[in-house]
Simulated scan of single mutants.
Amino acid sequence: MTQKATRHRGRVLLRPLTLIASVALALSACGAPAAAPPGQSGSAAAGGGGGKVVIGVGGQTLLTYLPTTLAQQLGYYKDEGVDVELQDLQGGSKALTAMIGGSTNVTSGYYEHTIQMQAKNQQIKAFVDMGQSSGLALLVSPKNEGQIKSIADLKGRNVGVTAPGSSTDMFVKFLLAKNNMQQSDAAVSAIGAGSSAVAAVEQGQVDAAVMLEPDVSVLTKRIGHNPVVLEDVRSSEGLKEVFATDSWPSACLYAKTDWLNQNKDTAAKLAKAIKRTLEYINGHSGAEIAAKMPESFAGGDKDLYAKVIDDLKKTLSKDGTFTDDGVQAVLKTQQVANPDVGNKEIKLSETYTNDLVK
C-alpha cells in the first residue's frame, strides 16, 4: 500500500469512527500463552455430561463477546439444557490459559488461538463463530497528528497494543510486513484496554496505538475530535483492503479437541444457543438488545450502548458458521505476523468445525 493510499484511507475512515462508537470488539489480549500451564483441578474438571459447563470470556463487557452473555440473559443455554457459568477473565490470553489449565471447559475468545496452539502441538477447535471482523483500528496519538500520516511513518515510533503477542500486536506486525517494513522498525508497548489505553494515547505515552471499542469512542470524546486513523478493519471495506477478504473470524467458542470429542452433545447445545442468539440480534434493535444486557455493561449511557450494538450487528455472523476464505485469511495473518506459526504446516480443518452449529 502506498503512503498516499494510506493517508487517503485515514481520512475516509474518520467519519465511521463516530458511527461505530463503542463497538467493544476487543481483542484485548488475544495472544496465546507461550506454553500450556500444568493441569489444574477445578470446577470445570467434569466438563459436560450433564454437569456445569464453565465458559471463560476474554472480556465480558466487550461487545465482541456480547452474544456469549446475551445467550445467558435470554435463557438460551438453559433452554438447551446446559448449566452454564460465565467467568469474566478480562483478556483472551487469560481465558485461553484457564482452559488449557483445566479451570474452564470452553473459551469465548478469538479463533486465531486455535491456529496458534496447533503450532504448539496443542489441539483446540472452534465450534461456533460469532464475529466476522477483528474490529481493530490503528490510531495516531493526538500529540502526533500531522507527524504520522502513514504506516511508513511508524518507523522508530512506539505503538501501543493491549499486550505483546496479542491480536493487536499481531495486527501491527502484519501491517509493517504489508508495507515492506521490518517488525523491529516500530516498538510496541503494552497499554492494556480501557482507561489505561485511553490515557496512554491521549497523553502521548505512545505515538500510535491499536485500539478497540469502546476505547476509541472514549478517546474521541476526551480529545474533542476524531483521531487520525491509519488502518481500520471494523468494516467490510477495511477487511477487504487489509486482508483481501470480507470475513475474518474473530470471537467464537472453542474448546480442547478432546473435550469436544467427549462432549459433542453439550457442545452442540452451546452452539445452538449462540446461533439462536445471533438470530435474535439480527432481528432486534440495539435498544431491545441493550435492554436484555446487564445494566452495568452500558457504562451509564444506555442510548450510546444501544447505538453501538446496532453498529456491532454489521460485523457479526448471521448463522454461526466459519467460512473457508475467512479462516484462510486468519492463517495468512498468523503466518506473516507470528513467528511461532511462520511456515509450519497448519491443518485448518482441525482448528474449526461447522458440524455442531449445523
Rank of each mutant, 00 (worst) to 15 (best):
M130F: 07
Q123L: 10
Q262P: 03
A29N: 08
K313C: 09
T114W: 05
S184F: 07
Y65K: 06
Q72D: 13
L89D: 12
H225W: 03
P38N: 14
L230C: 03
S22P: 03
D169V: 06
T266D: 14
G51F: 09
K94I: 09
E237Q: 13
Q123E: 12
L17E: 07
L176E: 01
Q203N: 10
K256Q: 11
A298T: 07
I281G: 03
I100F: 15
S189P: 03
A199P: 00
K269W: 12
T323S: 13
M293N: 06
D324T: 10
K221S: 08
Y111Q: 06
A251I: 02
T353E: 00
V218E: 00
T18L: 12
T351E: 01
Y77F: 08
P339Q: 00
L278I: 15
K178E: 07
S141Q: 05
D311T: 10
D319L: 04
Q132N: 08
S195N: 05
H8L: 11
G31V: 11
Q40R: 14
C30A: 12
K332N: 06
A329F: 13
V233A: 08
E241Q: 11
K149D: 11
S28D: 10
D129Y: 09
S317W: 11
P33R: 02
L63A: 14
M1D: 03
L17A: 10
K221W: 01
L356C: 00
V228H: 03
P16K: 02
V82L: 14
A298Q: 11
E231W: 03
G320P: 14
A298P: 12
M170V: 07
V84C: 03
V233S: 07
D169P: 11
D88R: 02
A268P: 10
T220E: 01
A271L: 10
N180P: 05
I115D: 02
V53Q: 08
A35P: 08
G50D: 13
I309D: 10
N105M: 11
K307Q: 15
S196Q: 11
I151L: 04
S184M: 03
A273G: 06
L70T: 08
K4N: 06
Q334L: 12
A36T: 05
V159H: 02
D153M: 14
A298V: 02
S285P: 02
L138C: 01
T321S: 15
Q123I: 04
A197Y: 00
L74S: 12
V84E: 02
V128N: 04
R15M: 14
L74I: 08
D153T: 08
Y352I: 00
V23W: 04
M211A: 00
F297W: 08
G326R: 07
G204V: 02
I346R: 00
D355E: 15
V84Y: 06
R234K: 07
L74A: 13
S184D: 04
S93L: 03
S43T: 13
K272S: 13
D265K: 15
D319M: 04
K256F: 12
F322Q: 09
F243T: 06
A95F: 01
D265F: 13
